[in-house]
Amino acid sequence: MGNILTWIDHHQQMIYIVVLMVFLGIEVIGRVPSVLHTPLMSGANAIHGVVIIGAIIVMGRANQDNYIALTLGFLAVLLGTLNVVGGFVVTDRMLEMFRKRK
């Protein structure tokens, strides 16, 4: 119990951010018209590709002789990039069509 309280105390900034982000996420999405739901889902999908940063860090810190970590890290970077790049490109393609008629 004490551990958790200490942890909360040490990470209070992060916890505040989490709480505020939850409300912000709900607030921002709440006003999206249903016609944009598919691009929105795709756009959100691209944004959680931010996990790539974790993959880069893990890869960059792996020991040069730890081949398991290197391979898995490489895979993580590759998959994360697919998520980011694919996500944004697909979203852009969808939205391109919406814009043409304006």
């Binding site: 992060m14 951010i17 989490v18 982000m21 939850v22 409300f23 912000l24 996420g25 709900i26 921002v28 999405i29 709440g30 739901h37 929105l40 889902m41 959100a44 999908n45 944004i47 959680h48 931010v50 996990v51 940063i53 974790g54 860090i57």
Partner: peptide, 21 residues
């Protein structure tokens, strides 16, 4: 894990938005 704000904000933002969607 990494005390990384951009991962935290991006992830939670999508987590909350995705749940609402």
């Amino acid at each position: 894990l990494y005390n990384n704000m951009v991962m935290l904000t991006g992830g939670i933002l999508v987590g909350a938005a995705g749940t609402l969607l």
